[in-house]
Design a protein around this nucleic acid. Structure first.
Length: 577
RNA sequence: GCGCCCGUAGCUCAGUUGGAUAGAGCACGAGCCUUCUAAGCUUGAGGUCGUAGGUUCGAAUCCUACCGGGCGCGCCA
């Protein structure tokens, strides 16, 4: 149990006592009561808002209630001082020994320190990437891939059972286009002069090797046949090849999904019919017409037709949405609703990582999930904004038409997996991110990747040095030798479990990156104190016991940095090169 | 026209789910560092948290309206 959870339990005990003694009404709602480190460390080690939150229901004023609570908190072991401050905060100061014990706990728990069970083993399905299988991964996919993967790891660390899933959109017209593009390249591989790639087909070179393999396997059998003869085969084979490409690219980032769900298979299995029936049984489906879209200008043609519609407006959507087209085939949404039902059947929570350009479709799919699961399963959609690429301040131009875009593989090759992953988590997901090839590999404090890695490497170097000097590590270190300044670092380290829980709860993995930066900065600051005052260095030849205690402190910081980086999918550096 | 996201220091961004005097980095000012652990360090200045109301003991955070920016809005995927 973390230190904060422990004191939260203590406080609950105190409140029980007061209720038993008649000083508080029984059965007060305590959900808003928090035990937290105060923002300003000069206020103490822990603060609680209990008196302010409960005063009204207790028909008293916050400071009076605080006056009743405070003495009981003061009697707790490890509490050295209690004061009532401001509008009714109760601030606690803890004995230095308690923080030394926390340091021991960090070291004892090792890589498990900070792991939480707020998830209680519930199942979460995180669907991310889900790029159309029509080409290699490019930078547009990269951020969602990293955010989704880091979030999945974070949720695992918070006690959820996580499935990492990729939805393969292999049923729409874009895969027909892909198959036609591959067929053209296939004819090219057979020696035909195909000229310019026509508008509307995929021009990228990545189809060439696939087509060469087709030519080797099929010879000229499908070169001049009508489309119906080869389209299904080419579609299936080319999609498979593209998925292999995508898996490879994701592998470069260390990303491996547990499940690839095929839209085509989903449709073939009849899942959309079953989902639609379920909605129909709830009287949420009807035949109707959509209004003329507001985005159309007067000149645009528009004809209203009869469609199978889902009453998503009953769940807060702006208009009802078509499940089926007028020709009776499923819309993307119709299949997607069925897909979410399928996911919800083996999950307690759903999370989708989507590009911000899909913001407009969030409500309808959330409506579908609510309707299909009767609210049992929640769907959180994290929108990930775009990444703007720069090279030394100059925007990198991309052209989709020519098929020339910056691929994920190129970026990983140039700056490395760890840099890419870390950088993608240095901002909240829903705001645009600038990625400058020059800056992200810079060895300076401006570069958070470097700064955090450097802290870890510095400690690794410190420990190597200590080992070379023959430091005795068999006996336990005497942590009482650590002073207030060093314990301040322990206090920051002790926040890690709270950070992990809040990041997992909010589905915001970037919080880990910011915390690690803060922790690294605090470590570097303490380290730098040794420049002015040699007595503050970590290793002192003439004071083996003190060195040993400080080394333990450094080891704890290193361990947390390593653990946090691991959640982000970033490897900790043993040395900087 | 409608929906979603965003608006915090000159710039780029955090802000512990409603807490106390709103924080980092860059840039700017001052001092230190010419190897002892310096791919720098310490320190200073910099803010009506877009605006106006509201809820609350308490608001950057929640609600409403407005202003400004981005994205999206067909039976596409």
């Amino acid at each position: 149990m973390s230190l904060y959870a422990r004191f939260s339990a203590f406080l609950n005990g105190v409140l029980d006592e007061l209720a038993a003694a008649g000083e508080l009404p029984p059965a007060l709602d305590r959900r808003a009561v928090a035990v937290e480190p105060p923002r300003d460390p000069s206020h103490g080690d822990l603060a609680t808002n209990a008196a302010m939150v409960l005063a009204k229901a207790a028909r008293t004023n916050p400071r009076a209630l605080a006056g009743a609570i405070a003495p009981k908190l003061e009697a707790l072991p490890g509490v050295t001082a209690v004061e009532i401050a401001g509008p009714g905060f109760i601030n606690l100061r803890l004995s230095p020994d308690l923080w030394r014990e926390e340091l021991t706990a960090i070291l004892r728990n090792g890589d498990d320190y900070g792991l939480s069970n707020i998830g209680r083993g519930e199942r979460v399905n995180v669907e991310y990437v889900s790029a159309n299988p029509t080409g290699p991964m490019h930078m547009g996919h990269c951020r969602g891939a990293v955010v989704g993967d880091a979030l999945a790891s974070l949720l695992e660390a918070a006690g959820y059972r996580v499935t990492r899933e990729y939805y393969v959109n292999d049923a729409g017209s874009q895969v027909d286009t892909l198959a036609r593009s591959a067929h053209l390249r296939y004819r090219e591989a057979l020696g035909d002069d195909i000229g310019e790639i026509p508008e509307g087909l995929y021009p990228g070179d990545y189809l060439k090797p696939v087509a060469v393999a087709f030519a080797a396997e099929f010879g000229g059998r499908y070169a001049n046949e009508p489309e119906a003869e080869w389209l299904p085969l080419f579609k299936q084979r080319t999609v498979a090849a593209m998925l292999e490409l995508i898996r490879h690219d994701l592998g470069l980032l260390g990303i491996h999904h547990d499940r690839f769900a095929s839209e085509a298979e989903l449709q073939a299995s009849g899942a959309p019919d079953r989902a639609a029936e379920l909605l129909r049984a709830k009287e949420l489906v009807y035949q109707g017409q959509l209004e003329r879209p507001k985005s159309l200008s007067e000149a645009d043609e528009w004809e209203a037709v009869n469609l199978t519609l889902f009453r998503s407006t009953e769940f807060g959507d702006d208009q009802d949405r078509p499940l089926k087209k007028s020709d009776g085939s499923w819309t993307y949404f119709g299949a997607d609703a069925a897909y979410h039902l399928q996911k919800a059947e083996s999950a307690d929570h759903l999370v989708n990582i989507w590009g911000a350009d899909h913001a407009g479709t969030v409500k309808r799919i959330q409506a579908a999930v609510r309707a299909l699961t009767d609210g049992r399963v929640g769907l959180d959609v994290k929108l990930v904004n775009m990444v703007r690429l720069f090279r030394a301040g100059e925007p990198v131009k991309m052209s989709k038409r020519s098929g020339r875009f910056v691929t994920l593989a190129e970026v990983v090759e140039e700056v490395g997996k760890d840099v890419v992953r870390f950088m993608m988590l240095t901002k909240r997901a829903d705001t645009p991110l600038d990625f400058d090839f020059a800056k992200v590999v810079e060895a300076s404090k401006d570069n958070p990747v470097f700064y955090v890695q450097y802290a870890h490497a510095r400690i690794a170097s410190l420990r190597r040095k200590a080992a070379e000097a023959g430091a005795d590590t068999s006996a336990p270190a005497d942590l009482s030798l650590l002073d207030e300044e060093e314990l301040a670092l322990v206090k920051l380290a002790a926040q890690y479990p709270r950070v992990l829980e809040s990041a997992a709860g909010a589905h915001e993995p970037h919080r880990i990156a910011f915390y690690l930066y803060d922790l690294a900065a605090a470590f570097h600051a303490l380290w730098n104190r040794g420049n002015d005052d040699p007595a503050r260095r970590f290793l002192l030849e003439d004071q083996p016991d003190l060195s040993r205690a400080r080394l333990e402190l450094a080891r704890a910081i290193q361990q947390i940095v390593r653990g946090g980086l691991k959640l982000m999918g970033v490897e900790a550096a043993e040395e900087m090169r």
